[in-house]
């Protein structure tokens, strides 16, 4: 259970990532979801940018990659921390021991995936 101890020792890091993710989720996500997930699919707006060849060019920009990286991973850590603490309140003892591993491990796994995907574009 050495790994679990190490994860628990990193508690300040998980709290910081939770805070940073809260900022990203609050300031950046609403506008992105509204335009990309609702307005464009409904045909309210049809920006030139959202076709394959333009997107490949835009996402190829290192600054855009860094932006997308944090826009994906920080909200994941934010959610991971909050869901972990809520589930902990259910007081299922055997589950509580592995909750940090499941959620911080999951968010870290997806961080690695995000990194690989962004590097490959």
């Amino acid at each position: 259970m050495c790994l679990l101890k190490k994860i628990n020792a990193l508690e300040p890091l998980w709290w910081s990532l939770f805070g940073a993710g809260g900022m990203v989720a609050a300031f950046l996500l609403p506008a992105h979801i509204f335009i990309q997930g609702i307005a464009i699919p409904l045909g309210w707006v049809s920006p030139d940018m959202f076709n394959y060849s333009s997107l490949i060019g835009i996402v190829g920009n290192p600054i855009v990659k860094i932006y997308l990286f944090f826009m994906i991973i920080l909200p994941l850590y934010h959610a991971a921390h909050r869901i972990r603490l809520t589930l902990e309140d259910l007081r299922i003892e055997w589950l509580n021991h592995i909750l940090p591993l499941i959620f911080y491990g999951g968010a870290t796994g997806l961080t690695v995936v995000t990194l690989i995907v962004l590097i490959r574009i």
Binding site: L29, Y52, L68, I83, V117, I121
Partner: peptide, 16 residues
């Protein structure tokens, strides 16, 4: 919040 982050990742994955 997490679901949307995963949707973004899926779209980027498809783009690559």
């Amino acid at each position: 919040v997490a679901l949307y982050a995963i949707f973004l990742l899926i779209q980027l994955c498809a783009l690559s």
